[in-house]
Computed example of a mutant assay.
Amino acid sequence: MIDAATDGGGMEVIMNKFIFSYPTKVYFGEGSAQQAFAAELGRIGETVMLAYGSGSVKKNGVYDEIKLLLEGAGKKIVDFSGIMPNPTYAKAQEGAALARNEHVDFILAVGGGSVIDCCKVISAQAMLDGDIWDMEYGKGKFPTAGIPMGAVVTASGTGAEMNAGAVITYEEKKWKGPVFGTGATFAVLDPAYTKSVPPMQVLSGAFDTLSHAMETYLGTSDQDNVSDDLALAVMRNTVVNMRRLLADINDMQARSNLMWDSAMAENGILKCGRLTDFQAHQIEHQLGAYTDCNHGQGLAVIHPAYYRHIVKDAPEKFTRFAKVVFNADTAEAGVEALAGFITECGLPTKMSQLKSTVEITPEVLRQVADTCNIIKCNPRELGREEIYEILTECL
């Protein structure tokens, strides 16, 4: 007889019912853009919004390559540039207005998670009469249609190309969180496109991947759950390949592995049949609403402090994490191994090391704690005072 897993309170935990769909077609590997466009051009509209960030895609030649492929197929291109890290709600509204005015019928996001997230909201907002934020957070409804879009990933880590969820900063409301738009019908994952990304950005993105897998794993799951095994494998592989990049930042095999780790962590497979614990993400998102710190680096600062608070609430899971991912013996040793790994990677370990133009003070952290979303699931629901305590431990 196999003992049933419990939720810690004696109640049996079984896998939740779910429907799984994988709508994004992935073209992976060097030169995959040409393969993708050869297959997808017939389904791409005549007027394409080519969306990107600060212009690095122009410097590294990716923009010219994609533009040539589109123009060669007779597509009209509408440029939309300047999408910033931590994309703002105002920028998404600007893009939606441009898409409507130019009668855009396809959006191609070329960049990292920020560009892709912004385009998801642009896609849905452009086809709505009302305001998408009011729709989702006021009426509790979500868009059912959007301008079709694709993604060419140039900086991996967020897995944004794998789903319809976007993280947007609404500056006027001092809020950063999810807005659900339109997912990409296809995604180009060419590791060669990440070559020009600064080393610290590569590592920050990879830590975001690690965080996605960790926070999914620490949610509620039944015993011997396949998603737990997959999450642990993604975590271990991410750590292994981050260490390879520390030895050689130009290791393309390691970059390839990390790019697929990123996609696997957010394509929904790890989340099937369970609730997830994304409390650290919620805290960091709201930190990003009050500052302009890098997302992956903010997560690196918050995670060890958060895990020290909850390690005793999920001892079996933390112990397995410790053994599989870091070859450590105990739950607590696994948390400290994670903290040591963050230091090994040169990622920030304190708020003072985050490159924010806004000074991170106890008063700012009080506002973050008082406004961040609280996840009501495993391992344990936090209160606002404990969130503030976690944040101040990171100063």
Rank of each mutant, 00 (worst) to 15 (best):
V202C: 13
H212F: 01
N241Y: 02
A213Y: 06
T216H: 07
S211D: 07
G205F: 00
R236M: 07
R236D: 05
L203T: 03
S211T: 15
A231I: 07
E215Q: 00
Q223F: 10
S221G: 08
S221T: 12
G219L: 09
A231D: 05
M235K: 04
L232H: 00
T238G: 04
T238K: 06
V226E: 13
S204N: 01
V202E: 07
T220I: 13
S227I: 01
A233R: 15
Y217I: 03
T216N: 05
L218Y: 02
M235F: 13
A233V: 15
E215T: 06
S211R: 02
E215Y: 07
N237T: 15
Q223L: 13
N237F: 01
Y217Q: 05
L203Q: 03
R236P: 00
E215A: 01
D224G: 07
N241E: 09
L230V: 08
H212E: 05
N241Q: 11
R236T: 11
T238P: 03
V234L: 09
F207R: 01
N237Y: 08
L218R: 04
M235E: 13
V240R: 09
G205D: 00
V240S: 11
F207I: 09
S227L: 06
N241I: 01
V239C: 04
D224A: 13
G205C: 10
M235S: 07
F207Y: 09
N241A: 11
S211C: 09
S221K: 10
Y217P: 05
Q223M: 14
T209D: 02
V239Q: 00
H212T: 12
L218G: 03
S221R: 13
V234C: 01
E215F: 06
G219Q: 04
V234M: 08
L232W: 05
A206W: 03
T238V: 06
G219C: 08
V226C: 12
D229M: 14
R236Q: 10
D224T: 10
L203W: 02
S204A: 11
A233I: 15
A233F: 14
D222G: 13
N237E: 09
D224Y: 14
V226F: 13
T238E: 02
T238A: 02
A206Q: 06
V239R: 05
V240H: 06
G205N: 03
V240W: 06
V240E: 12
G219M: 12
D222A: 11
D208P: 02
L230R: 14
M235C: 14
D208H: 01
V239D: 02
S221A: 15
D229V: 13
M235L: 14
D224I: 13
V226L: 15
G219H: 00
